[in-house]
Design a protein around this nucleic acid. Structure first.
Lengths: 217, 217, 217, 217
DNA sequence: TATGAATGAGACTTCATTCAT
DNA sequence: AATGAATGAAGTCTCATTCAT
């Protein structure tokens, strides 16, 4: 439930609260911070709450992060970069049609991001971009653009192979990515107030419709 | 005068919480507040700044709005409801294919929302939903669900008329709306940091691809 | 007792606490701050205490001064510069021997600085110089060096007129000023713990001995 | 071992408050603390910095000193008392004129105090007196007054021997000591920001002028 | 109606002190 | 004896809100 960071803690029982845990602390703090930032946004997040949620005192936060700003940036940077890397790896040795690969990537993304706390990051980036310009810049360059380039190549390949119709890949990329990002944002904002809706079904439909629209013939 | 909004709230507890205090409409205040909230988010918005931007003193704000919360809610409610009404009107007397109507609605929405300050509202709703549960509830019921139902009927009609293939309209609605909402969110968050990109072209492509995917054959 | 700043308040009774006093506030705050800084030093001074001593709330301090640092600097700058100007004026139209003038200046200094709260400033400058390098720089240039140059000219004149023996004025200046500055420092540090001692008598003796040592023959 | 200091405190309440906890002398700690306290003042001194400067961990400080207060007091007491004793010894067997002895003492003081880190102590005493009343009391009794009495006897002797003119020794003592103490204070406060100035020359001049003023004829 | 000076609760942050190792 | 991670009290500073004018 806590995603990949949780693994670091999995062999630690609550009983060892008294243990020195310098190694594990940052990951625990980041996880707690991700949760609270995702829920409340940057300004409304109280460091007290993050600390309590991480099982430490407020002062201890400052042993690991210089400031609330630094913690926020670390949350974004530390959680998101491994996801990009992981996605790129998955694509590397793929054999098969571009369409199949793209659907597979959607599935990976669903498992690794959408269904974990990491899904909170797009929302906090979107909400706080103008308050953290350098972070926004960083995110754009290292996450957004990197992803766009990666997907654009696939679409280009699909066009060349005759899987996809002739079209502007720049638009196609964004059309493909929008439902993914949006479902993460929605899940962490209004979905809890909305009636139940199976996001899997949505992704399936949306992607199917995307492929119907973009495939040749 | 106030009744319009009041009616919509009639099924909410404490409904008059974000009603304006005075009859005179401080449109400048709401406009200024919309701008600042859209840019900074709720918590990072300073009432000082809103007041200055509206050309009044901070104290005067309190003649019209009970609190920062109330101002925020008023911004959302006052700007967004007329948009829904306007969209519904436009559909009413339409003669022509469903597809044409839907594309026309996209265009209307682009002019009336995306290219105005109103486009800031989806972002602030998404960012602050969990900090304003009643507002989230209100927004969902009066904006999101109302829009969904409206569009769902169109899609249903399209299917019945044989314009669209047989499919689950619930998913189709969300697939259709996602690019609209997302482009508004993006414009008010990361777009200013992104390279230039013509959002019109994006909407055209996305909607075209949506229609290619959903049309019969 | 409060010195020249007090005059600004002299026509205001306590009863008008409820009055707007934007004009008078800064002077009141500076006076209170001077007292507390003089007593406790910079770091040990609590803004709560300054505020209470000035009869205002903690937040009000920030309407007039950006930070504790800014308040501290303002205290030094605002109180000390007028003293320098006043001293220079007094010297301007003097007719008489240099020795008489210098003794008169000592007397003026005693009345205007030593016996007022302003005497606290040399101590706080000395104590905090290394924590406020720019302030130290400012103080040296605008207070210390200006005073030295002023006195050096007098001594030079005394030598030329044959009142004083041939000597290095650079050293004579410092020899003359040291007891003045030191008595201000002492009064605001260890004197309260010391046995009673008439500082007037000290100044008289010290200056008399200085003049005995420096006069011709 | 500890007795030496202990005896001096025997007439003070709570005298052992600033005694070292262990017998082993952490001379490095006191030296490091002297430096940092002299530079920054009491409150602005971080125990982290003292520890680092002494090459130990922050926790280790507490093996030797009960608190920051205790460390501060120990610094003052441990460094200053031996200086007094040393000065008194030097005077003991002196054969020659009082004037010569006094100038010799100035020279000793210059070597042993002014040119060492011990010169920082007068500044920190002056800066922190009111925050450490008992320490101020102790310093006055065991350093200031002891020195005054010592010098007063010399001056008295000088008057009796006809070296000095008839004058009030109480004032003469302070006039003699002021330049010494002040030069130590200055060196550790504003001097680093001031233009270069040879403090030796100053002392020579000042003492020469003092003697010119006080000698018979 | 409009102002803006004043407030004070509440947040971030620091750092002396503790204590399990 | 020595460490350094952890704590939490206390301070600076912010800003929504009030209220006398």
């Amino acid at each position: 439930m806590v995603g990949f960071v949780g693994e670091l803690n999995s062999n630690m029982k609550d009983s060892c609260r008294w243990r020195r845990r310098k190694e594990a602390r940052p990951a625990e703090i980041l996880l707690a911070a991700l949760k609270v930032f995702s829920l409340k946004g940057f300004a409304a997040t109280r460091l007290d709450e993050v600390a309590k949620s991480a099982g430490i005192s407020k002062g201890t936060l400052y042993l690991y992060f210089d400031s609330k700003d630094a913690l926020f940036k670390a949350v974004v940077v530390e959680f998101i970069l491994p996801q990009i890397a992981k996605a790129e790896e998955q694509a590397e040795d793929y054999r098969g049609s571009v369409m199949e690969l793209m659907l597979k990537l959607v599935d990976q993304w669903r498992c690794n991001v959408l269904e974990t706390d990491i899904s909170g990051i797009p929302k906090i980036m979107v909400a706080e971009a103008s308050n953290f310009p350098e972070l926004a810049q960083f995110y754009l360059e290292n996450v957004i653009q990197r992803t766009r380039i990666f997907i654009e190549k696939l679409i280009q390949l699909g066009i060349e192979r005759g899987e996809f119709r002739q079209c502007n890949p720049k638009h196609a990329v964004r059309t493909f990515l929008t439902p993914l990002v949006f479902s993460a944002i929605w899940k962490n904002s209004l979905a809890p107030f909305d009636e139940y809706y199976d996001i899997n079904e949505y992704l399936k439909f949306t992607m199917d419709n995307f492929m119907r629209g973009i495939k040749k013939d």
